[in-house]
């Protein structure tokens, strides 16, 4: 350490460099201030969307609430009043719906991210295309068929729904994990390894943090897919808001149909917004 001090002194009294310019003044002007303050930069536009989206969602929720109140359930016919009862039908179904979407998304993350990491490591790299093809076919199958397929194997219930949805939503997270990791510049990894970082350190300190934005985008897609697909859970006795929608269709009650579908939309929009929020604030600084 101490041997550096003279060099510092040397550079210190060597205020200007060979061509007489200040070392600091050497950088090209366009790089001096890389973040030109434009009025609506892309980042700011995105933040604007992030800030206004909750207003839209709240507006939609208010509209639905007003419509729900205007139905005056206490005095309406049973075909409307029964399926739209908040305490016994709508609220439990919303909870069920979220439970399905939550567990299927968690399982997708737990399965797809480690799988994606493994498939980008040298020993397993060659299996990547095969696995992606399998995940691809999971998404190519009609969701309806997938549910029925798992119904015949695993029986009725919420668990079956979750398993089917995991297979269905695996692809975006798996593919984004692989793409995100592959997109990390070779030179950055080479520099890390060259400084004596272990493979594990390079993965956890460099590759994964840099891949976070891409992986999160995949998770967001999977989450929205799951919320949407959870409306089909009623088909195999999985519950969820699909029940209300189906009832509305079967009894030809537009009010029931509209309210059921609206709640799904509100849930989906809310979680999409939370996803966007996570993408913005979990993005590593400097990238």
């Amino acid at each position: 350490m101490s041997q550096l001090t003279p060099a510092q002194a040397r550079l210190g009294d060597h205020g200007t460099t060979t061509d007489g310019r200040e070392p600091e003044g050497s950088l090209p002007p366009d790089l001096e201030a890389p973040h030109e303050p434009g009025w609506l930069t892309r980042a700011r536009r995105k933040h604007l969307g992030l800030k206004t989206a909750p207003l839209g969602i709240l507006g939609l929720a208010g509209l639905v609430f007003w419509y729900y109140q205007s139905l005056n359930l206490a005095e309406s016919k049973v075909q409307i009043a029964s399926p739209l009862a908040w305490g016994t039908k709508l609220w439990p179904q919303t909870v069920e719906h979220l439970t399905i979407a939550f567990w299927s998304t968690v399982l997708v993350v737990v399965v797809a991210i480690p799988l994606g990491i493994a498939l980008t490591r040298p020993p397993l790299r060659r299996f990547g295309p095969t696995i992606v093809a399998v995940a691809n076919s999971g998404q190519a199958l009609p969701a309806y068929g997938l549910l029925i397929l798992f119904l015949s194997m695993l029986g009725q219930g919420l668990r079956t729904v979750v398993v089917a949805l995991v297979l269905y939503a695996l692809l975006p997270v798996l593919r984004n994990t692989m793409v995100g990791l592959d997109a990390v510049e070779r030179s950055v990894i080479e520099a890390g390894r060259g400084m004596g970082m272990t493979r594990w350190q390079v993965l956890t300190r460099i590759e994964l943090p840099l891949a976070v934005p891409v992986i999160l985008a995949g998770v967001r897609v999977a989450m929205i897919l799951n919320i949407g697909m959870a409306t089909l859970a009623y088909l195999i006795g999985g519950g969820g808001l699909g029940v209300t929608i189906a009832v509305g269709l079967k009894l030809q009650q537009d009010a029931v149909l509209v309210i059921g579908a609206s709640i799904v939309a509100i849930v989906a929009l809310t979680f999409d917004w939370l996803g966007a929020l996570a993408e913005t604030y979990l993005r590593p600084k400097g990238v």
Binding site: V188, A191, G194, P209
Partner: peptide, 17 residues
Amino acid sequence: LRRRIGYVIQQIGLFPH
């Protein structure tokens, strides 16, 4: 071994984050 040896490459490879 590599922690004992400084290593500089053309593409620099600074960690952007």
